[in-house]
Design a protein around this nucleic acid. Structure first.
Length: 210
DNA sequence: ACATTAAGTGATT
DNA sequence: AATCACTTAATGT
């Protein structure tokens, strides 16, 4: 675990902190599609992403959902940060996009290290900054982009975090992620295919214009 | 052979 | 962009 840890975080944290993370952190793995955080969960520890990607979704009481952004290696979850501070329930759902490995750190440590490690403080602030930026981008996408552009952006993002331009997904799933109907997705995907931007197959889509 | 799920399409709002 | 209604194609049992 230490090798994986230092591989991802050595440039961020000093040795003493890496050692602490190594002894205190709990290594965990998830398979693709596994739910990592459910809506309403109490957060008692914060994750450091070592590998894979996590999809962050907003969801209402009816199970209607909407993808906000993805987390990748070296990231941590901003929701976790604010939940650890305020003792509140999670307002988002986190689902493993790919196979994921991460380290869980108890929330007491995360606040304790804020004062004891400069590098930790910088990392937390930087993470907050990045998450806010991503949230704003998500808002812009929903507010200002037409559905057709949203789909294409979604496909590109998905290809990016998966490291694969062949996406194993269905029109129905895309519709759920973007919170629209399947028929709309099918139509616009067909249009994108005619524009030579993607190729459609049953249960998969190949993104051409990356 | 039959049922189920994924995807394509015209018409309407 | 959403919804309805219907068709076609692929896949599972």
């Amino acid at each position: 675990m230490y090798t994986e840890l230092s591989h991802n975080f050595a440039y961020l944290f000093e040795d003493a902190l890496l050692k602490e993370i190594e002894t205190i952190g709990v290594f965990k793995q998830f398979k693709a599609e596994d739910t990592i955080i459910e809506l309403g969960d109490f957060i008692k520890s914060m994750p450091l992403l070592l590998s894979g990607a996590i999809k962050i979704l907003r969801e209402d009481e009816n199970g209607e959902e909407l993808v906000l952004y993805y987390l990748e290696k070296g990231d941590t979850c901003a929701m976790t940060l604010s939940c650890c501070m305020g003792q509140t329930k999670s307002k988002i759902r986190a689902v493993a996009e790919t196979d994921v490995s991460l380290i869980l750190l108890p929330k007491e440590k995360m606040t304790e290290w804020l004062s004891s490690y400069k590098s930790w403080q910088a990392f937390i602030l930087e993470s907050y900054h990045n998450r806010v930026e991503e949230l704003l981008e998500a808002v812009d996408t929903i507010a200002f982009l037409k559905m057709e552009d949203r789909i294409f952006k979604y496909l590109k993002d998905k290809a990016m975090v998966n490291g694969n331009d062949e996406l194993a997904t269905t029109h129905k799933q895309i519709a759920e992620d973007l919170h629209t109907s399947r028929v709309v997705i099918s139509r616009l995907l067909k249009k994108l295919e005619n524009e030579q931007k993607i190729q459609l197959f049953r249960n998969s889509i190949k993104v051409l214009a990356l």
